[in-house]
């Protein structure tokens, strides 16, 4: 697989630091998510955490994860969509790290004002994610638990950065363009060139990038 060129639109000092929590239980077989993770890891201002790599037995270090959250302004879950949600370790991560008094409840203000969104690959085509499709709901509707989690934590929720029909993306040559978009979004968020207010209303973050991003 090809590496994405390093540091698209890098700035001397990032306005926002980005934390990408990557969860793929079988990274050797990943065709989309792992290249995206590698590309993100090479972008300045981005911290990439391979959760299955760091916690292969699921013994998540909540203190360490909370410290990571504190030191970043954008939190991204990067994962394949499993049963309309994340792989198991990201659920475990939420259960252990988003504690009362830290993420929500009295004194739980650590995440206030941070930006959150899912970056995911979905197996089904976009047509499946609507009332008439076999998934019956739009992607954004299906991800409402994350939206509400972000709201409870006082975070700004953005719609998912999603790739549909992911099993055929490599053969159809869609991956490289997708990764390039992914780099644009990360860099724009980092440099505060993304129209957050407008993005919040979009069905997907990558539906109309040109309309959201003010190029440097």
């Amino acid at each position: 697989m090809k590496e994405t060129p390093r540091a698209i639109g890098s700035a001397p000092s990032p306005r926002r630091r980005i934390l990408v929590l990557f969860a793929h239980p079988s990274p050797d077989r990943s065709e989309v998510n792992r290249p995206m993770a590698r590309a993100a890891a090479n972008l300045e201002g981005v911290t990439l955490v391979d959760l299955y790599g760091e916690y292969p037995t699921f013994t998540i270090d909540a203190d360490r994860e909370q410290a990571r959250l504190r030191s970043h302004e954008v939190i991204v879950f990067l994962h394949p969509l499993y049963w309309y949600s994340t792989p198991a370790i990201l659920k475990e991560w939420q259960d252990l790290v988003l504690e009362h008094g830290f993420a929500y409840g009295s004194g739980g203000t650590a995440l206030h004002g941070k930006i959150f969104f899912n970056t995911l690959s979905a197996g089904g085509p976009e047509a499946a994610y609507r009332a008439e499709g076999y998934n019956h709901f739009t992607l954004r509707e299906l991800l409402q638990p994350f939206e509400q989690t972000a709201m409870l934590c006082g975070m700004i929720y953005l719609p998912p950065f999603a790739l549909f029909d992911a099993r055929n993306a490599v053969e159809q040559g869609r991956v490289e363009a997708h990764i390039a978009d992914w780099m644009r979004v990360l860099a724009a968020l980092r440099d505060d060139r993304l129209d957050v207010a407008r993005a919040r209303r979009a069905p997907r973050l990558n539906a109309d990038l040109a309309g959201l991003i003010r190029e440097a």
Partner: peptide, 27 residues
Amino acid sequence: WTPPPRDYARDLAEPEPASDDTSPPDA
């Protein structure tokens, strides 16, 4: 965590999804 076959989504385009695979599919 073995991904489903590449063309699996075609079979799902039925009125009711038949999820007889025990592994979590990339939905």
